[in-house]
Simulated scan of single mutants.
Amino acid sequence: MTPELIAVLAVIAVAMFFDYTNGFHDAANAIATSISTRALTPRVALAMAAVGNFIGAHLGGNVAKTVGDGLVELPAGLASLGVVFAGVLGAICWNLLTWYFGIPSSSSHALFGGLVGATLCAIPFGVGGTVLWDGILLKVVLPMIASPLVGFSLGALMMLAVMWIFRRGNPAKLNRGFRWAQTVSAMAMSIGHGMQDAAKTMGIVVLALFAGGYQDSKTHIPEWVFWTSATVLALGTYAGGWRIIRTLGRKIIDLGPPEGFAAETVASIVLFTTSRLGLPISTTHTITSAIMGVGATKKLSAVRWGVAGNIVTAWILTFPAAAAIAAICYFVVRPLF
């Protein structure tokens, strides 16, 4: 095998490992609310989320194209593959760190930060990479700010609408009904997660194929890339991320079936819309802010703002922290590429 082929295979392997960590790290995004309200048993919820992620991956081509061609510019060549490898490795390290502490941070922004950090570190070595700052601003930073605000606002509005429409309903009957409804909303949420997060791994694989000289386009996604990324994400999801599931499901607010349905519905709408537009947003930011918005309709003290503050702090740190880790990783792996 040529050095380029070995490097491409190494990048694909580490991208798939990231995909797997993304699955168990972000399993909470799709099913934490359904588990906490007892709408679904944990294993049934995880199996359903895995299937939804697999389906959603085949619908996320627009997001994959943004990741492959809209964030960093790398020339074809062995050195560029080292940059991508280090960037993904930095994202994996941050994923594992935040998973260990049960913090629902964004795997997406860890990946973006890793790519940017590795690219910036490689520039002085003459690799020829460029960070597309306009793309980072328009497709990462602005959606990163907007998606939590939208999720919080729509979550509050959705919950107020549910409370008003069913204000005369029998609480016990309503809870049973909303548990059934959560089966649908959780499935929609898991499909939206697949549309966003599997697509990001696909974008990395396409970038590696281009840098290695195995395809001329940075936007064409081979069919095997869809299937591989979808399968690995689904397997990671089924493995579960119980530390983060507990944080989202119990530690922010005490969720009931109506609140869980409202949060999942809002988050899935946002994910479907942004995926269609090719905007790579964070599923973690979206569902977490929707849960906060839903909880705030009861009373502001219903949201455990200390926990929420820790989560937001992790959101802010994710991009620069992953970038810094990726820069260190680049120094380590550079002699191999």
Rank of each mutant, 00 (worst) to 15 (best):
V141G: 02
G249E: 03
G192N: 05
V184W: 15
V312S: 07
V131Y: 12
N170K: 06
M144K: 00
G213S: 06
I204D: 02
L115C: 15
A118W: 04
V303R: 12
V127K: 04
F210W: 06
S107L: 05
W99N: 11
G295A: 11
N29D: 15
Q196S: 12
T313P: 00
T313L: 13
L111T: 15
T274C: 00
S190Q: 08
G87W: 06
G194P: 00
G213D: 03
A15G: 13
S36H: 14
I244H: 13
W305I: 00
I31C: 10
G236A: 11
N62G: 07
E223K: 13
G135A: 01
A79E: 13
L120V: 03
V162F: 12
D254W: 14
F85W: 02
I136G: 02
F152M: 09
A49P: 01
S185I: 03
V270H: 13
H58D: 04
W305M: 01
A118I: 01
L207V: 04
R243Q: 06
G278C: 02
L71F: 11
N62R: 10
G126I: 12
D69L: 04
M144T: 07
V270Y: 15
G129E: 10
S36N: 14
A156V: 00
A79G: 11
W133D: 08
G87M: 07
W164T: 13
V44K: 13
Q215P: 01
L97H: 03
L149E: 06
N29V: 06
H25D: 08
V67I: 15
V72M: 04
F337M: 06
F101E: 06
I6E: 04
T237G: 08
V206T: 04
A15Q: 04
V294I: 09
Y100W: 15
I252Y: 14
S217N: 10
I92R: 08
I92N: 12
A57C: 08
